[in-house]
């Protein structure tokens, strides 16, 4: 429990646009204000529908100067998405910081921009168990899954708010009442439930001293191990030079030769997406890919 002290308390909430980062930070800021504390908040917003990185710094205490938190000074880091949590981990106080993260993955297109079969995704590879071991206090949970079970996936931010509430020195009643102000009137009850699901989860986790449940995701073989080129097999006798595959190839790596047959310009450009094979009316193309997922 972080006691309110002379030094400002620093909370950093991070996630992906549309997850509700700003709601979490607004509830906390309003709560601090109603308790007569000075609050400063600084955020990147406007990303709600655009799937970008969103973060919000909240600092509160008897006196706050700078609205931004220096690296290594965050008391509680709340992440609504796994890779976003890792992105900001260097901001966590390495001695006594608390890291609370959803294990949910939202893989951005940039992480799989290289469509070549067998190419590595650049999504964060650490498992929650690995990270939790390294931070002073760490909790990783499948809040998105818990919210889904509750019946509304969008309440995952409130579940995390519930967990956040156990690390700060405010009354449960005040949390609940402030939360009510910011959620749509119809979902007040649902959000209160979500809030308590979060609180119960952390109580269980602490009592059973059980490391946060590692998402099932990691038991699957997520990351491709093998690399290899695509094999592009062509049966010239069957090709009538209709040009469909040349026109539709997303990488534009096919070409029609003067004798009205298709050839591949550079096999390195081929991503093995199989569009040509799929569209060829004469079954003249076969794609063979290296083993991707075992």
């Amino acid at each position: 429990m972080t006691k309110i002290q002379e030094r400002p308390t620093n909370v950093l909430v991070v996630g992906v646009g549309g997850q509700g980062v700003i709601l979490v930070s607004k509830v906390l800021a309003q709560l601090c204000l109603s308790k007569g504390l000075q609050v400063k908040q600084s955020e990147i917003h406007g990303m709600a529908k655009r799937g970008g990185t969103v973060f919000s710094h909240i600092r509160f205490g008897p006196q706050v100067w700078s609205p931004t938190i220096p690296a290594g000074e965050v008391d509680v880091l709340v992440a609504l998405e796994w890779a976003e949590g890792l992105r900001w981990l260097e901001y966590l106080n390495p001695d006594c910081g608390t890291f609370i993260s959803d294990t949910q993955h939202i893989v951005p297109p940039f992480a799989c921009r290289n469509r070549q079969r067998g190419s590595e995704d650049t999504y964060a590879r650490e498992t929650p168990a690995e990270i939790i071991k390294k931070v002073p206090n760490g909790f990783a949970l499948d809040a998105a899954g818990m919210a889904q079970e509750l019946g509304n996936e969008r309440t995952s931010n409130t579940i995390l708010l519930g967990i956040l509430s156990t690390t700060l020195d405010f009354e449960i009643k005040d949390w609940e009442e402030t939360l009510d102000l910011f959620v749509p009137p119809k979902t007040v009850e649902l959000n209160r439930q979500a809030f308590h699901i979060g609180r119960q989860w952390i109580e269980n986790a602490i009592r059973t001293s059980e490391v946060a449940p590692v998402s099932e995701l990691y038991e699957q073989k997520f990351f491709p191990e093998e690399k290899g080129l695509v094999e592009w097999e062509f049966i010239p006798e069957w090709c009538k030079g209709c040009d469909i595959c040349v026109k539709m190839c997303p990488e534009r790596c096919l070409k029609l030769t003067p004798d009205q047959k298709v050839e591949i310009l550079d096999i390195n450009d081929c991503t093995g997406c199989r569009i040509c094979e799929w569209l060829c009316p004469d079954f003249a193309i076969n794609i063979r890919k290296p083993v991707f997922i075992s």
Binding site: M47, G72, A83, P94, P109, F110, A111, A124
Partner: peptide, 19 residues
């Protein structure tokens, strides 16, 4: 700090805004 060193191998993917 030690924490940063511990997570040095991690690399969060860029997440630019999209339409």
């Amino acid at each position: 700090s030690g924490l940063v060193a511990a997570i040095a191998k991690h690399q969060s993917p860029p997440r630019p805004p999209r339409l």
